[in-house]
Amino acid sequence: MTTEVKQVKMKDLKALDPRWCTGCGDYTMLVGVRKLMVKDQMQPKDTVYVSGIGCSGRIPHYMNTYGFHTIHGRSVPISTGVALVRPDLNVFVASGDGDSLSIGGNHLLHGISKNIHCVYMMHDNQIYGLTKNQTSPTTRKGLVTATSPGGSIMDPINPIRFALGLGATFVASTAEWLGQHFVDTIEAAKNHKGFSFVHVAQRCPKFNPAAWDFQNSDWINFLDHENGVAGDTKGAPDAKVVKHDPSDLEGAFSHSENVPNVFGIFYQKEKASYDDLMRQAVENTPKKDPSKLLDGFAL
């Protein structure tokens, strides 16, 4: 059988016109993922973009791949089903900070710990955007929101620590406005076998413009390593660049103290994915004759 593989171009990846607010970081993420697909010639027919609910949840509609815009917090269950039965597909997951760490926390926990093969992008704008300005699990202490008129009283959850603590096999953080760093990071995530957890700093000009100071870069620390992703000193000229080997778990925990001001690959290791193990278990089971299905129940 000869299959003609079509050259993938940026314009092929456009679907509906996005409906995000002007200046929303989701636009740059959308372009970044398209760039990766063109760069690595990922076939749209073999790519499934799964999302939860929120502004991030809309991304599949704007990508001309297969897509599944699911329900709030539940992108991982759908992705798990897809990954278990279709190892031939590339699965991208888009989820926001509330979607990931509030309503979908249990699923994210199990997606990470089962090491389901997918690229999980947590769009972190530190606010509930689509529901209009409520405190999220990553909202910084003191931020005034519709549900915290006196300022948020809680310390935000550290998503990197969450992932590292669960034994994630790929943990990274990047920022959507750092185009090169973003594409490099999700490319490394895509090439990793298992659950690639990528925290993405994402701008919300409407409700939380102060979350990420994208016009300055002196607050940014890049984790740089030959086995990781190079620090993006062009996009962030004033950033500090520190060496960190992604196989160093202790170092990863130590750097995670400074989250969300650290971008790069915190940790990466090889480990069998649940979906691979499950398929192997089925494949290794000696097969029985389906026409004798009920013979074992004979009196």
């Binding site: 499934v48 599944f68 699911t70 539940r74 991982v76 269950p77 759908i78 992705s79 798990t80 089903g81 897809v82 278990l84 039965v85 279709r86 597909l89 249990n106 699923h107 926990l109 199990h110 499950m278 398929r279 278990a281 089925v282 089971t285 000696p286 097969k287 029985k288 389906p290 299905l293």
Partner: peptide, 27 residues
């Protein structure tokens, strides 16, 4: 497994139905 089928014990009821839908979505 002897008939090529897979059983996934999900983390909760919601995830179980989600994985079922994911599988059917994938064909």
């Amino acid at each position: 497994p002897a008939y090529g089928g897979m059983v996934h014990q999900a983390e909760d009821e919601i995830s179980a139905v989600g994985a079922m839908i994911g599988s059917y979505y994938a064909g």
